[in-house]
Design a protein around this nucleic acid. Structure first.
Length: 115
DNA sequence: CTATTGACGGAGA
DNA sequence: TTCTCCGCCAATA
């Protein structure tokens, strides 16, 4: 039975779709810990829950985790492309849908309607 | 209880 | 451009 310690982090990581990646800082921020990228790293380091796609989390430069041997293979298996050692972040960085974005989209719709 | 340790990231020198 | 400093917070000694 996996531990339930870094649940807020793991919840966010579980939302990253196949073929996309997210950064530690991003995951931490969405999980409610802005500026705590290290915390996300710590959580994934301690992650023993197979339902958490921890291979989809990379650092801000697209670099992979130092001891996570199968990470690259798993990402490539999902269609993630690389630029040298790093993930091509600009291409496949996950863009989470935040509650505020839904509001903004709704507003834009109304604005468009009003012309 | 305190100090230290990280799969990090941005700002300043 | 490369390097250093500090914030963040759970786990561990």
């Amino acid at each position: 039975m996996p531990r339930r310690r870094y649940e807020r982090i793991y919840d966010v990581v579980r939302r990253i779709p196949r073929g996309r990646v997210a950064t530690y800082g991003m995951v931490a921020m969405v999980a409610g810990y802005p500026r705590a990228a290290r915390f996300a790293g710590l959580a994934l380091h301690h992650c023993d829950d197979p339902t958490v796609p921890c291979h989809r989390v990379v650092n801000a430069s697209g670099g992979l985790a130092p001891h996570f041997v199968s990470q690259r293979a798993r990402l490539q298996h999902e269609g993630v492309t690389f630029a040298g050692r790093n993930v091509s972040l600009a291409r496949q960085l996950w863009t989470p849908r935040l509650p505020s974005e839904r509001v903004a989209a709704s507003s834009r719709r109304q604005a468009a309607g009003r012309g």
